[in-house]
Structures are given as C-alpha cells and as structure tokens.
C-alpha cells in the first residue's frame, strides 16, 4: 500500500481487463450447461467468484467495493437461497412434471426446473463465497492496520 494507486502493476491490470470477462462467461456457461456436460451450479458459482476475486486482487478492493459491497452480496445470496427453496419445493411436490418445454433431450432448456435450480445454486454460492472472502480480507487489513 505504499504505491500511489492501489492494486498491482500495469501489466497485471491490462491482462485482467482481457481475461476477467472470459472467466465470467465461462462460469455462466458451466452453470447453464450443467445438465448436458460436466459442471453444474457449484463449480460455475465458484468460477464466477474467482472472476470477482481476480478483479479485486488486480485493482484493489475499493474498485470492487463500489460495485458490490457486503450488504448487496448478502442480499444476492439470500435471494439465491430462497429461489432454490421455492424451486425445490415445486420439484418435491410434483416430481413427475419436471419439464416445461417439449420433450427433447440434449438441449439447453430440456431439463426444465433442474436448470433453474442450478442457476439459483450458482447465485447463492457465488455471492456467498464472495461475501466471505471480502469479509476475511477486510478483517486481515484491519488487523494489520491496528498492529502498525
């Protein structure tokens, strides 16, 4: 934190500008294709978290905190959890009606409510783990500041 501008060097920032969008899109892809190819809500959610963490490590935490602070992140995690609860109870009440589109396998929408619950899980895992990481980093910074 001796430098004038927070974060890492110019090279890291430039590379991050190129790659962070790709990582985010890959996370969304893994989430949405979880019923056709390997992947799913948990892995996709953590990849989305890693995109935010890369942004945070490269540009410093103020840049990220302006976009997504802890309260917003916790709100997103709660929305994801409640969404999963609603979808899951819908599945459990009527387990036979799994799909709301035509019976065609190997498509993006063919799994119906399974895909929706994947999206809810990914939202909860991504927002929740990012909030945890943010809290941990802020805790460490606080402690280091107190020591000096």
């Amino acid at each position: 934190m001796k430098n004038k501008e927070p974060g890492m060097s110019l090279i890291v920032k430039t590379i991050t500008r190129f790659t962070v969008g790709l990582v985010l899109v890959y996370g969304i892809f893994i989430t949405l294709q979880g019923h056709v190819s390997p992947g799913g809500g948990f892995a996709g959610g953590i990849i989305i978290t890693l995109a935010f963490i890369q942004l945070m490590l490269a540009f410093g935490q103020d840049e990220v905190l302006r976009k997504l602070n802890q309260e917003k992140g916790l709100l997103l995690a709660g929305i994801g959890a409640i969404l999963f609860l609603v979808i899951a109870s819908r599945i459990f009440l009527k387990p036979q009606q799994h799909s709301f589109v035509a019976e065609k396998h190997f498509q993006l929408l063919s799994a119906g409510f399974l895909s929706l619950s994947e999206i809810a899980i990914a939202l909860m895992v991504a927002a929740g783990l990012f909030v945890i990481f943010l809290t941990l980093v802020l805790l460490i910074e606080e402690e280091e500041k107190e020591k000096k």
Binding site: L129, L136, E143
Partner: peptide
C-alpha cells in the same frame, strides 16, 4: 461428494477466520 467439496471450502474459510481472530 459434489456438495461435500464445496462444504469443505466453507469450513476451511470459517476455520481461517477463527484462526485470524485468535491471532489478533
């Protein structure tokens, strides 16, 4: 096991934050 891995990550993060509190 798929969900167990993610739970293990959450447990590790809780343990690290407890360790930081103890260090403080």
């Amino acid at each position: 096991v798929l969900t167990t891995i993610v739970i293990g990550l959450a447990v590790t993060i809780i343990a690290v934050s407890l360790a930081i509190r103890i260090y403080e």
